[in-house]
């Protein structure tokens, strides 16, 4: 016979009351602000690549992606991106900088296990699903379009 007899629902009510609340409105605004700013920076690079370096629209777009991946990776290496993530949540997760972060972070974490089974094997430990589902979904969409 136990001393504490509560159902999960009864207990969850207590937990919800005592837990510090997550401020969803401020989280939304922070995600919006940071995510929007990252996209704005991307747009500025895009215009720069087209006007200053004479890239085509398509190549400039690709250069922007590479630039943002570089910046996301660099800020991860400099131990800054996790702080941005704690502040911005989805705002820094969703942009391609966050994708770069999701590759660099596990690679760094397992660096001490060596270059091949450490860095090499862990580059995709978080980013892998994105690529797998992206490719499979692209294939299926293409298949449907081809068949119909």
């Amino acid at each position: 016979m136990k001393n504490i007899n509560k159902t999960t629902d009864e207990f969850n009510k207590i937990v919800k009351k005592e837990q510090p609340a997550v401020n969803k409105v401020s989280n939304f605004l922070k995600a919006y602000l940071v995510g929007g700013t990252i996209c704005l920076i991307g747009q500025i690079f895009w215009e720069l690549y087209m006007t200053l370096f004479d890239y085509s629209q398509q190549d400039a777009e690709t250069m922007v992606t590479i630039t943002m991946i570089f910046l996301g990776g660099l800020l991860t290496g400099l131990d800054v991106y996790d702080e941005i993530g704690q502040f911005a949540g989805a705002g820094s997760l969703v942009p391609v900088t966050g994708f770069a972060n999701s590759m660099v972070a596990p690679a760094l974490e397992y660096k001490q296990e060596g270059f091949i089974i450490g860095i090499g094997a862990n580059l995709f430990s978080i980013a892998g699903p994105v690529l797998a589902y992206g490719m499979v979904s692209a294939f299926l969409v293409g298949l449907i379009k081809t068949l119909f």
Binding site: Q19, P20, V22, N27, T76, G77, D79, Y81, D82, I84, G85, Q86, F87, A88, G89, A90, S92, L93, G98, N101, S102, V104, A105, P106, L108, E109, Y110, I126
Partner: peptide, 17 residues
């Protein structure tokens, strides 16, 4: 942290609790 959670430098948001 690396046994139970995500890599340290991964930019996920943790709740205040």
């Amino acid at each position: 942290e690396r046994q139970f959670r995500t890599p340290l430098e991964y930019g996920v948001q943790y709740p205040p609790y």
